[in-house]
Design a protein around this nucleic acid. Structure first.
Lengths: 161, 161
DNA sequence: TACATAAGTCAATATGGTTGATATAAATCA
DNA sequence: TGATTTATATCAACCATATTGACTTATGTA
């Protein structure tokens, strides 16, 4: 039989693990961005646009969960720096389809590849079964996302509008 | 032989998993705090003081990595609400030893227990091997924390927000 | 005594978010 | 066609939270 307090202790340790692991995971990109004078919003814009090219400004606002006024500053920065491109949609010329320029993709790649390398190293260090366990746990957690702002993906639950 | 692009795709999926899972993990405490009109700083204070009772204001400032002016507002809120107690140290009457009142401990417990329950549910859903794999991966990541503000490792109890 | 330290406060400032109002172009409806 | 809605883009006022700097008070130490 499992001691309740011991169980709680293990779970407390897991809470802390989550906090520290996430901090390590995000420290690198933050530092890379800061070097170039960009902030987190810029990173998130690069990230979302990179993974969903052609998305509209409104969609991006929904993904990020910020107001359009809060988005526009950083978005304009990125466009002026030539990292993000905005081209009118063919279907509806009002909507601007956002995408990354080569330079934008390169910066995004530089940031994400650091994170991929970090995870790849950890996964190979811990072994395939551990990596699969990690993915199962994180996947189960992510499934609980009730946010409306999620991107639909084949394997995901569709957002309720 | 492993296809490089396929490998990168799996790693990209892992990046997204991390992002969404963390968001789910932090949504609950944020909501609980917001209900009561507290912000994240208040939570972090409750957490740190709860896990390191008797710590000084300066130590707390170092743990949080904020200025004393930034801390004092929230800290005063918590003291006035009777959640955090400050008693002069016996050794040095200048330093205030911070601790949680019963009410403070109860709120902290309420917040953390939600997160423990969330993780416990996920762990039992995914099975013991997956949970162990998750812990191995997160532990390996957390080990890479180079932060100056960490506590010595013997107790190594750390914040969740 | 002279200086240093811990805590608390006040003021000025910066940043990053919010809402509200408004403008423009494009699409759609009656 | 004219009226209305939608998507994007600003401007302005405001607010929360952080910063640094200067200062006070109480206490400890050389």
């Amino acid at each position: 039989m499992v001691d309740i307090n011991q169980q709680d202790e293990r779970l407390n340790a897991a809470l802390e693990l989550f906090y520290y692991a996430y901090r390590v995971f995000t420290a690198q990109p933050d530092a890379l961005l800061a070097e170039r004078g960009w902030a987190r919003v810029h990173h998130r814009v690069l990230y979302f646009v990179g993974r969903e090219p052609g998305l509209s400004v409104n969609t991006l606002i929904a993904r990020l969960g910020v107001s359009k006024q809060a988005l526009h500053g950083p978005l304009r920065d990125l466009q002026e720096a030539g990292l993000v491109l905005a081209t009118p949609s063919a279907q509806d010329k009002r909507v601007r389809c956002l995408s990354l320029s080569a330079a934008g993709a390169a910066l995004e790649e530089e940031i994400s590849s650091g994170q991929r390398a970090l995870l790849a190293g950890i996964f190979s260090e811990c072994g395939v079964p551990a990596a699969q366990g990690w993915q199962a746990v994180m996947g189960a957690l992510a499934q609980l996302d009730h946010s409306v702002n999620r991107r639909p993906a084949e394997q995901d639950i569709q957002p309720i509008l």
